[in-house]
Design a protein around this nucleic acid. Structure first.
Lengths: 227, 227
DNA sequence: TATAATTGTATGAACATTCATTCATAATTT
DNA sequence: AAATTATGAATGAATGTTCATACAATTATA
């Protein structure tokens, strides 16, 4: 991640063209490693994933890891960052689709983004929990999570505030309502991960919608289960 | 754990007394190790906790761990088992206090047990997530969790079913309502663990009560915030 | 040909486990 | 009661393994 600058610098320095292709290839290789790391973490956990595992899955040599990341830790941090970034991109996209005016529709889109097919894979959820399991011990992970949580929480609180205003839910506190919904969504992820009766993504969505209807009964229609 | 039988056997065989004291001391020593393991895991995570760490905190020799547990893994499993057992004991006790007739009061007691002072310590929540982070990778952890989840889920579903019947919430499905509440409680644990604005246990309780009131509006009184 | 990228082995640090020894207490014998 | 023997808990240094990182050799690219 930190070599991006030196790449750009080099391009400027030489004045030649090629940074396009070279940089793209470099990015693709980094991506390969990040994907492999995520895959390994989901199957073996953070503690038991070795660089050899990652190299094997990425179909690269162990030495290449140092080429693209300072070390194992940096790779793991980059993987976490990417997961967080991907999720943020996902809910932003879904919200954009829901328009800009209807607060209920936007809130619905936001919360259901948790259960998108590309987000709510068992594999990825396992990785989220692997990181959360280490978050106390590793300040770096904590910092990355905090950065994305901030914008996530702010958005959710604003959505709740809008709906509370528009829908006439004077008794609800926006911040508390938002935290409650966030907790519900993340708790459902845990259910997805550990539940013996493997709840499908659709079922998880319906649990989330049940929570939304309960909190915002006037908008039950907007939060109805999909047909 | 597996020597208990041979101990009892010996007592029977010799007819003499002493197993009392010896067994108690043994149990106390095991306890010391389990407590030390929980402490270390909460501070360093499962992956970075070494037997040396545990021995230091327990104020014992590294070799003593093998004396009481097959190995590091067995100790960790025992610690998880104990945490799960403690939690089950906690909610059972709180429910007993809530009586046997009032479904709402019992459900309230059950859910608020998540936020008892002795259960909802940051330290212990960190350990829960450390285990969940590894649960995919370690079948042993998964089995222990599944065992306790079963009785937990059954109880919660029965509670929801009772209240749905008594309170006239025909539109609610007991199983789905139960899962939703469980997810909310566990999600609030995560909030407790990672939330930058460290929510106090009281605040967490209030979030849970908000969820209960939303789902069961006829019983808002029973689920009111504490004064 | 010069430069960059890739590879896989070499290295040493970190670690869990093993085990010979010590020591306090209980059991047995005088 | 005193002396002797037996027991098994406790210890921590020794052992062998696992792993991340560094680096020298090799291959690809420009």
């Amino acid at each position: 991640m930190e070599n991006v600058d030196s790449q750009a610098e080099k391009a400027r320095w030489r004045g030649r063209a090629k940074p396009q292709a070279a940089e793209a290839k470099r990015a693709q290789r980094q991506q390969q490693l990040i994907l492999a790391a995520i895959d390994c973490i989901s199957r073996k956990g953070i503690g038991d994933t070795t660089v050899a595992d990652i190299a094997r899955v990425a179909d690269m040599a162990v030495g290449s890891i140092t080429q693209y990341f300072t070390g194992k830790d940096a790779l793991f941090s980059a993987a976490l960052q990417q997961m967080a970034q991907e999720f943020e991109t996902a809910w932003r996209a879904d919200m954009a689709l829901a328009g800009t005016h209807d607060a209920a529709a936007r809130l619905r889109a936001f919360l259901l983004a948790y259960f998108r097919a590309d987000v709510c894979q068992r594999k990825k959820v396992a990785v989220w929990f692997a990181y959360w399991g280490e978050v106390r011990a590793r300040p770096r992970y904590r910092a990355i999570c905090a950065e994305f949580d901030l914008v996530h929480d702010t958005m959710l609180r604003d959505l709740c505030a809008s709906l509370i205003q528009e829908g006439g839910y004077a008794e609800l506190d926006p911040a508390r309502t938002a935290k409650t919904l966030a907790a519900l969504a993340q708790g459902l992820w845990l259910e997805h991960l550990t539940g013996s009766d493997g709840l499908s993504r659709d079922e998880l969505s319906m649990h989330a919608l049940l929570g939304l209807r309960a909190l915002f009964p006037h908008d039950a229609d907007a939060f109805a289960d999909p047909a």
